[in-house]
Simulated assay, not measured.
Amino acid sequence: MSRTVGRRTFMIAGLLLTLVVAGVVSYYASSSPDGLEWAAGESGFAGTARDSAVAGSPLADYGVAGVDDGRLSGGLAGVIGVAVTLLLAGGLTLALRRRSGTSARD
């Protein structure tokens, strides 16, 4: 087995594992408030919270707007987040490789 095939297999396996964690394991995540929200409630200043400027965005609050099932919405948001992160990282990698003059084979 060549080194390229081994690297490609490793990367695909890592991608699949990431998607499983983001999409499936997040389905079982707790729906209770996170630590900061809990601490704010315990300290008595939770009522002073305001929505962020992006509160109305399609992926606000760890979910996908328009998907009624909270757990499914969270899983979809995780998968979309992984995809966007990989696209940004891949695009940045390609741009930096071209800028420095190195090829993908180096």
Rank of each mutant, 00 (worst) to 15 (best):
M1A: 13
S2F: 04
R3T: 11
T4R: 15
V5N: 05
G6Y: 08
G6V: 06
R7C: 11
R7K: 13
R8T: 14
R8D: 05
R8Q: 08
R8N: 09
I12E: 04
I12S: 02
A13W: 04
G14P: 00
G14K: 00
L16W: 02
L16Q: 02
L17K: 02
L17H: 00
L19M: 10
V21T: 11
G23C: 09
G23P: 02
G23F: 11
V24N: 04
V24C: 13
V24Y: 14
V25R: 07
S26A: 15
Y27A: 11
Y27C: 01
A29V: 11
S32P: 02
P33A: 02
P33N: 03
D34S: 05
D34R: 05
D34T: 01
L36C: 06
A39C: 01
A40F: 08
A40E: 09
A40H: 08
G41P: 01
E42C: 05
E42V: 14
S43M: 13
G44P: 08
A46F: 07
G47W: 07
G47I: 01
G47V: 03
T48G: 05
T48A: 14
A49R: 11
A49F: 13
R50W: 07
D51H: 08
D51P: 03
S52P: 01
A53S: 11
A53W: 15
A55Y: 07
S57P: 02
S57N: 10
P58M: 10
L59A: 02
A60P: 00
A60M: 04
D61K: 02
D61S: 11
D61A: 06
Y62H: 12
G63D: 06
G63M: 03
G63S: 14
V67P: 03
V67E: 04
V67D: 01
D68H: 12
D69S: 10
G70P: 07
G70I: 10
G70K: 13
R71Y: 06
L72T: 06
L72D: 01
S73L: 01
G74H: 12
G75A: 10
L76I: 03
G78A: 09
V79C: 07
V79I: 15
I80A: 14
I80F: 09
G81V: 03
V82F: 07
V82K: 03
A83G: 08
T85C: 13
T85S: 15
T85Y: 14
L86G: 00
L87K: 00
L88K: 04
L88V: 15
A89D: 10
L94K: 10
A95H: 12
R97F: 11
R98K: 13
S100M: 02
G101S: 06
T102H: 14
T102K: 15
T102F: 10
S103Y: 09
S103A: 12
S103H: 09
A104L: 15
A104F: 14
A104E: 08
R105L: 15
R105V: 11
R105H: 11
D106Q: 11
D106T: 12
D106N: 07
